[in-house]
């Protein structure tokens, strides 16, 4: 069973996307410097290279797109009897914030054309859309397919079993839409969901370190010398984020 829709509005969509996206500018800017030998070590006070973790106000997704990402990532990493999933980790906020920043714009990726149709599996990401735009066109295409083939409902309104079925069809390239690389989108969504479940909470996902606590990863600690000789025994310690945490000592 498969579906195929011609997305004839592709050129129009691309036009509007450009208008709605912050200019995909030059890669990370940096100034040329000259350091003369024989002087002080060129360390500068207060110039620590801090992460760009995004702000709560950094959003890209529309309400409808948020519902799609929330529903789809909740199928990839479900909340169930075994423990928290994408929803508890707030993966959708992580993804939204990433798409609103340099990552969504593909700012650090090589995005020059041409973009040929024939691509080998071994050649990786070859979409002309940077991540944020790929989300936008793909979600539109999937919701349109759902509307046509699932009684006018959007993906987020479907039953979980139906959602699983559609995600599987996209992953296995049984559901394709001309001009929209849905399998590439699935792969990106899958990667981003795992990132949002396991990245440091400073980026908006892995909320309260639920992803780390679930698997037993202690997080951003930096000294395990006391535990090298664990000899196959469990080491139980609560996770620590780059933001820290209230309890820093191991429960042993």
């Amino acid at each position: 069973m498969g579906g195929r829709t011609d997305l004839t509005r592709r050129a129009f969509l691309r036009h509007t996307l450009l208008a709605g996206t912050v200019l995909a500018g030059f890669p990370t800017l940096a100034l040329a410097r000259e350091y003369r030998g024989g002087h002080q070590w060129p360390w500068e006070s207060g110039r620590a290279d801090v992460p760009h973790y995004g702000l709560e106000t950094d959003t890209f997704l529309t309400i409808g797109e948020r519902q799609f990402v929330d529903a789809a990532t909740a199928r990839l990493i479900p909340s169930d009897d075994d423990g928290p999933g994408a929803r508890e980790a707030d993966v959708v906020t992580f993804i939204d914030r990433q798409l609103a920043g340099f990552y969504g714009r593909g700012q650090r990726w090589y995005m020059k054309g041409p973009f040929p149709e024939d691509v080998l599996d071994t050649q990786g990401y070859q979409s002309e859309y940077p991540p944020a735009d790929l989300y936008r066109v793909s979600i539109a295409a999937i919701d349109e397919w759902c509307a046509q083939n699932r009684d006018g409902r959007s993906f987020a309104d479907l039953e979980e079993a139906e959602q699983d079925e559609i995600l599987t069809m996209i992953e296995e390239e049984e559901l394709t839409v001309t001009g929209v690389p849905l399998a590439t989108f699935f792969s990106l969504l899958h990667d981003n969901a795992i990132e949002g479940f396991f990245a440091d909470p400073i980026y908006g996902g892995n909320r309260d370190m639920v992803g780390w606590a679930y698997v037993g990863f202690p997080g951003a600690r930096y000294d395990y010398r006391d535990y090298i000789a664990h000899n196959g025994q469990a080491i139980v310690m609560p996770p620590v984020s780059l933001m820290g945490r209230p309890g820093w000592t191991a429960e042993r």
């Binding site: 890669p27 990370t28 620590a48 290279d49 650090r108 396991f198 990245a199 780059l242």
Partner: peptide
């Protein structure tokens, strides 16, 4: 400045967002 212990263990930033590497752009 660039990989202090308080910032270095950041998997997303350094590996998946390639901050240690040449920019393909």
């Amino acid at each position: 400045t660039d990989f202090a212990p308080t910032m270095a263990p950041d998997e997303l930033r350094y590996y998946w967002r390639h901050e240690m590497f040449q920019e393909t752009a």
